[in-house]
Design a protein around this nucleic acid. Sequence first.
DNA 1: CCCATTAGTTATCATTTGTTAACTAAATAG
DNA 2: CTATTTAGTTAACAAATGATAACTAATGGG
Lengths: 142, 142
Amino acid sequence: MDKSKLFQQFVRFTSSVHQVTNDMTKEIKIENITTVQYKILEFITVSQPVTLSEISECLHLSLPNSSRELKKLIQSQLCEKIIDPNDRRKFDICLTENGTVLMNKVFRQLEINFQERIKNLTDSELKEVEEAINILQTKFFA
Amino acid sequence: MDKSKLFQQFVRFTSSVHQVTNDMTKEIKIENITTVQYKILEFITVSQPVTLSEISECLHLSLPNSSRELKKLIQSQLCEKIIDPNDRRKFDICLTENGTVLMNKVFRQLEINFQERIKNLTDSELKEVEEAINILQTKFFA
DNA sequence: CCCATTAGTTATCATTTGTTAACTAAATAG
DNA sequence: CTATTTAGTTAACAAATGATAACTAATGGG
């Protein structure tokens, strides 16, 4: 097994993934939301409930910057704090009703783009793709 | 084949890919190079020769911004313009000697991180991973 | 009870990135 | 030959993001 060749493939692959996901999300424009704020929203959506520290760590933002951006999202009523009764320094962050509606809309649009991309694949190809995702997810990106 | 379920998996997967590649590149710090400039360098590295318009389009930067950042990279002697003799408005952009040395160093570091991640996989698992990458690359991210 | 630590806040400032308009120079179409 | 289009440049400004320091308030160990 040539591990260096595998690395080359990996580089090309991740670069394609970034390219495609960028293209898919590119057109999605939410008013009064910056790029970083969108990333935070997306992170909350798939990982809620999350703490501010988790946002900070996973998105490579400093705590002060995370705090500032979250504040704006809360002001826009897209997410909210739920104070942890066990440790009142902490709080969990969740989407609000509004935020959920918004992100559902975003993900529906994303899914349309996704379905468009796979529309020419046969059922057995789809099965292969599904398998491939599972393998990479468990073996490499775990 | 449940295409909506596949979409869910896709979302989780791409989010993992971003997470992992972010973590892998996070520690890589090049002096006097900003994030966007690094992305440009990376793009040139894997796609050279490229035109300014290609940089602009693929990285979702405006032409003026691309021009400005490229100028800085050229001033740092990391890349250079090679004017197209067929169309003198255009030019190809390549890494310089310096730029190549630098990016080789970066990719060596990346490869170390990569090898670290796969070190516990058996040969047959590596084979599976390679196959999975190929499938996704050809079927989906083409 | 005191001290250190943890989790987050606020303010301020520097740097990076985005946007727009007005521009040049080369190519191409009529 | 002129008019338009293409590819890129420059400048000036606005907005977003990053970094740092000084802070509060709650927790936990001894």
